[in-house]
């Protein structure tokens, strides 16, 4: 008997990405640069988050031509983004053979109440989360991988740090609680009880949790690893930098050796300027992508 799309196969795929860097790319050439630099996967997009921010309007699933071009260009896994709650975009990406779908707040949500029932799909999903309640709800819906939301396209790590610290702290609290306190904690967090119970018993999330949203330097990537991330997504950081190839390689190495500070110093030399970056407090509340998701 051969079984596809099992929880183990879907979560296992993300386990294989651990300690690695997943890079946003908008065409085959960028995908090849990312693969050669040692990326463990690429995210095929029409525009990177900072350009989505600049362009405004409704951001949707990428043109399938771009996704297909990237799928054909590299042998590493290819991820792609669907709008929150957009069943058809997700099904289209699954039918195209995409390896992982990001139900992403970077795109304009298609549904302001419900997320996708991700357990229904053969393809695995990654979702963003800012706290343990959100993380547990996404796991309850069938997400096989999580990432911090951060504040995408800002080149500012502060929100990703906030989200990672929040989730880690809440996990520690759940693990330390006695089991009879757990239902009330589930109510307070807005988290499914069963998922919290699993986290309490295992002492960790049942899926991999990557850092995302605002990683702009090798030191940022290493910082997130040190805070407990299993790996790193780099969105606008790589291909908005002066020397994408060098920058991509530096991020990969800093993620592997995140506690080797001499090495990170070497890696950080002469990278040229990173993306300019945005102070979060100057963002109009309506432009905060992390608020999307329920």
């Amino acid at each position: 008997m051969l079984k596809t799309g099992t929880e183990r196969v879907k979560r296992g795929m993300a386990e294989m990405q651990k300690g690695g860097v997943i890079m946003d790319v908008v065409n085959a050439e960028q995908a090849r640069i990312a693969e050669a630099a040692g990326a463990v996967a690429v995210m095929a997009l029409e525009r990177v988050p900072s350009d989505i921010r600049a362009a405004g309007g409704v951001a949707r699933m990428a043109d399938p031509t771009i996704t297909e071009e990237v799928l054909n260009a590299v042998s590493i896994p290819v991820m792609a983004k669907a709008r929150i709650g957009h069943i058809v975009e997700a099904r289209v990406l699954e039918a195209m053979g995409v390896d992982y779908i990001d139900e992403s707040e970077v795109l304009t949500p298609a549904d302001e109440v419900f997320h996708l029932l991700k357990s229904d799909y053969t393809v695995p999903f990654v979702c963003g989360a800012r706290d343990l309640g959100e993380a547990a709800r996404r796991i309850g819906e069938g997400a096989s991988m999580l990432r911090t939301k951060g504040e995408p396209g800002t080149g500012n790590i502060v929100e990703a740090v906030r989200h990672m610290r929040m989730i880690q702290g809440q996990i520690r609290k759940v693990v330390a609680m006695s089991e009879d306190e757990l239902m009330t904690e589930a109510k307070n967090l807005g988290a499914p009880f069963e998922v919290l119970l699993q986290i309490k018993k295992a002492g960790k999330l049942p899926v991999v949790n990557f850092a995302a949203g605002g990683v702009a330097t090798p030191a940022d990537a290493a910082l997130m690893m040190q805070l407990g991330a299993d790996g790193v997504f780099v969105g606008s950081g790589v291909f908005k930098s002066e020397n994408p190839e060098k920058f991509a390689r530096a991020i990969v190495e800093a993620t592997t050796h995140y506690q080797d500070y001499k090495l990170i110093a070497e890696l950080s030399k002469g990278l040229g300027s990173a993306m300019k970056g945005i102070d979060i407090s100057t963002l109009n509340p309506a432009d905060r992508m992390q608020e999307r998701g329920w």
Binding site: M1, L2, K3, T4, V9, K10, G97, Y100
Partner: peptide
């Protein structure tokens, strides 16, 4: 042969 059984949607468990 790499990725010989196909892409992620073809990943599977078997006895």
């Amino acid at each position: 042969e790499r990725n010989a059984f196909g892409r992620q949607v073809d990943s599977f468990e078997a006895e």
